[in-house]
Nucleic acid binder design. Structure first.
Length: 405
RNA sequence: GGGAGUGUCGCAUAGCGGCAAUUGCACCUGACUGUAAAUCAGGCGACUUCGGUUUUCGCUGGUUCGAGUCCAGCCACUCCCA
């Protein structure tokens, strides 16, 4: 099976500028392509992960990836977050974030021997001269056409700043530069980037009279039409400090039935035949098998086999009724939190970060949502004696281990 | 520069001067389940000796026994005119 077929079968392809050309180039391993990442945080999240997978797949097929880090766009602050204007990131933060990104990416992408490169668009964007840019690039863009682009059309009602309006120009310019400096002939990205990417191919054609290609990958939406990889508490991060391997595992273990197969196809490297076979046998237990595979496979990709095994074991122990608590999320209490070896149940919950306030904890206790060592606690005044390991259960799925430091 | 309007618990939306403040979504807990979905029930500012206590409605002052609600100034956003 060719790379292109694989991508297509996995449902990753969204829009392409020139199907035949792209298919031929990437199958032959002749493409040099780039994907942009704006360094808005100090860790990548699930949204970036798909792009990385795509890079990896293409790299394995012999194509050369360029990681474009948005050091320049980050200086201005990516305005695509609709509700609030992002805080200006300091150059130090951006540099730091870029370093973090690079480190995480090198787990997936092989940067050795120039097989892939990372560049920072600050290198050229920061030195641009306004008037020069307008004459060189601005003349190539028709405002009328830009306004008809989907990404702007939607914003016309809510308001669009000049800064945001220029985003397409900057991204187009990036492509233009990469095409000239590195022979980069393709750009990939999320489907929401489509019009920005077209801007680049258009610019290259007008300025250089050459063809470049763009392709978008399907956005990973769940069955409710929301972006995957978000929880109420924020994004699901790839950094184990920000989202522990166990939490990461649980996120995928708990996806909706309707989304398992899609996630397996789009995010994992499990053979497509295997996934398609599973799809045929999904009744009851089949779903759980599929979800476990999804969770394990992704945790392994992101955190390594060891962590994946631990998470799987912890999950099985906890939900299978077994007693193995070795890999459960845990808190060590210092003795000064205890009175006569015991602690109030509400304080305990707060200490472990299971509830944000004592009021919330009180409600949980009163509603019967808290168990200690498998015994339901319904009295908010109860004191819990901490001896050895104490297992707290909140709700149906959250387990936490407490020990004394 | 001129005019109109808006700013309430994550989002959205009520709120005759006496309300911890309506409703929907989201979220949390319980029941039913498959660590799924749907459904039903309860909860959803904080602290509490469970009797209460206390802090909130863009910001700052004022009127009033009492203000989310009235007045003034400021800030932010939206719309219309230039």
């Amino acid at each position: 099976m060719t790379v292109f077929e694989e991508l297509e079968r996995r449902g990753l392809l969204a829009q392409l500028t020139d199907r035949e050309e792209i298919e031929e180039l990437i199958n032959a391993g002749k493409a040099t392509f780039y994907i942009g990442f704006d360094p808005t945080a100090d860790s990548l999240h699930v949204g970036h992960f798909m792009a990385l997978c795509l890079m990896k797949r293409l790299q394995m097929a012999g194509n050369k990836p360029i990681v474009l880090l948005g050091g320049g766009t980050g200086m201005i602050g990516d305005p695509s977050g609709k509700t609030d204007m992002r805080k200006m990131l300091t150059p130090e933060t951006i540099a730091h974030n870029i370093e973090c990104f690079k480190k995480q990416m090198s787990r997936f992408i092989d940067f050795s021997d120039n097989k892939a490169i990372a560049v920072n668009n600050a290198d050229w964007l920061m030195n641009l001269n306004y008037v020069e840019l307008l004459r060189e690039v601005g003349a190539q863009f028709s405002v009328n056409r830009m306004l008809t682009a989907e990404c702007y059309k939607q914003r016309m009602e809510r308001g669009l700043t000049f800064l945001e309006f220029n985003y397409m120009i900057m991204q187009s310019y990036d492509f233009y530069r990469l095409f000239q400096d590195y022979g980069c002939n393709m750009q990939f990205g999320g489907d929401d980037q489509w019009s920005n990417m077209l801007g680049g191919t258009e610019l290259i054609r007008r300025k250089l009279g050459k063809d470049a290609y763009a392709m978008t990958i399907t956005l990973l939406l769940n069955s409710e039409g929301k972006k995957m990889g978000k929880t109420e508490k924020g994004a699901v991060w790839l950094d184990p400090e920000k989202t522990s391997p166990y939490e990461f595992f649980q996120y995928w273990r708990n996806v909706a039935d309707a989304d398992v197969i899609k996630c397996l196809k789009m995010l994992t490297f499990e053979p497509i035949e295997k996934i398609e076979e599973m799809e045929q046998n999904l009744e009851g237990a089949g779903f759980n098998q599929a979800k476990e595979l999804l969770a394990y496979s992704l945790t392994e990709l992101v955190h390594g086999k060891e962590e994946a095994d631990k998470a799987l074991e912890a999950a099985r122990a906890v939900f299978g009724g077994g007693g193995n608590s070795a890999n459960m999320p845990s808190t060590e209490l210092t003795t000064d939190k205890l009175t006569d070896g015991a602690i109030n149940i509400l304080d305990l919950l707060v200490e472990c970060g299971l509830v944000p306030t004592k009021s919330e904890g009180r409600r949980n206790v009163q509603q019967g949502g808290i168990s200690i060592n498998n015994e339901k606690v319904t009295d908010p005044k109860a004191n819990i004696t901490i001896e050895g390991e104490v297992i707290i259960k909140k709700g149906k799925k959250i387990f936490h281990k407490v020990t004394i430091a």
